[in-house]
């Protein structure tokens, strides 16, 4: 290729790049304002004492991180957050998959089933929280009423007992969120070509084999994204816990999200809250980093 044609090509590429950049620039600016700016601010605040109302800053070095890391409540709060995120993720996936599979079958009352399963997702969290508070109420709640019919000794104060409170709120949270996963999984399943399952059935595969050998591998990429979204949502959400137990009894249901909120908006310690936020971000990034490395190794092994 001649030098002249090379020059023409480079000029054209430059023009294309220029117009491409022009088109994406509004999104880049929007992302910078919406994501990067707050992130940078949180990072700056985490190293400072923040004085209201003008957000005056005084550099403190790693003092906020030291305070967060030496807090006696940190181990419990971290444990609660991990349990809250991953146990609810597991329950949501089980319920989501189960109802998505039911959706794949034709039966009478399928529309009604679909409506009923979607109700928890459409409910405002404050309403759902109060509904579950009533269900778990040890004095007048329906759960203890039913438990007492079977075994009166098993009735307990579900939200008032340190050993049952976290599991109780996790169940409520899972109940609220599983319809979203169900919808996504149904959408994913509809994208799997019918020929695959039909071929497997002709070859004699049963329903369980079709699920594990066809459905699940086909949804792999899709489920990975869903898992990431659910983990992020789990780490951040606290409104249900806040209404149901306020993080109690003691700190039995206190999570990192709730802790950050309390530090910032009730104690007005924006520096410490930012420090905790940054630590949470680092923790999540390390988790995702390790997960990505492992995934790549597995993919290479499969390809090799």
């Amino acid at each position: 290729m001649s030098k002249k044609s090379n020059k023409v090509l480079t000029a054209r590429r430059k023009r294309e790049w220029g117009s491409g950049l022009l088109f994406v620039s509004p999104s880049v600016i929007a992302m910078a304002c919406m994501v990067a700016y707050p992130l940078v601010l949180v990072l700056i605040y985490s190293f400072c004492k923040v004085s209201l109302p003008k957000f005056d800053l005084k550099y403190l070095g790693f003092e906020n991180f030291r305070k967060v890391l030496t807090s006696s409540q940190l181990p419990v709060v971290l444990k609660n957050t991990l349990l809250w995120t991953f146990v609810s993720l597991l329950i949501r996936f089980i319920l989501g998959f189960a109802s998505a599979l039911i959706m794949q079958v034709d039966f009478k009352g399928k529309t009604l089933f679909r409506i009923i399963t979607l109700i928890p997702w459409t409910m405002p969290s404050i309403v759902a929280a109060n509904l579950w508070r009533w269900i778990y109420n040890p004095d007048t709640g329906i759960l203890n009423f039913l438990v007492k019919q079977i075994n009166p000794a098993a009735a307990t104060n579900w939200l008032g007992n340190s050993s049952t409170a976290l599991m109780a709120v996790i169940i409520s949270y899972s109940w609220m969120g599983f319809p979203y996963l169900m919808l996504m999984i149904v959408a994913g399943m509809q994208g799997i070509p019918r020929e695959y399952t039909e071929a497997a059935r002709i070859d004699g595969a049963n329903a369980v084999q079709v699920f594990f050998r066809i459905t699940l591998p086909q949804l792999k990429g899709f489920l990975l994204i869903l898992t990431l979204l659910e983990i992020i949502s789990g780490f951040n959400s606290f409104d249900l816990i806040f209404t149901m137990t306020g993080g109690g009894p003691g700190v039995a249901t206190e999570t990192v999200g709730l802790n950050i909120y309390r530090m910032a908006f009730q104690n007005y310690d924006f520096g410490k809250a930012s420090g905790m936020g940054v630590l949470l971000l680092i923790m999540v990034m390390i988790g995702f980093g390790l997960y990505s490395v492992r995934q790549r190794r597995l993919e290479r092994r499969w390809q090799g």
Partner: peptide
């Protein structure tokens, strides 16, 4: 009062 059962069990919340 709570431990003696003179108040409802749910009082903790």
């Amino acid at each position: 009062l709570y431990l003696d059962g003179s108040v409802p069990e749910g009082c903790i919340n």
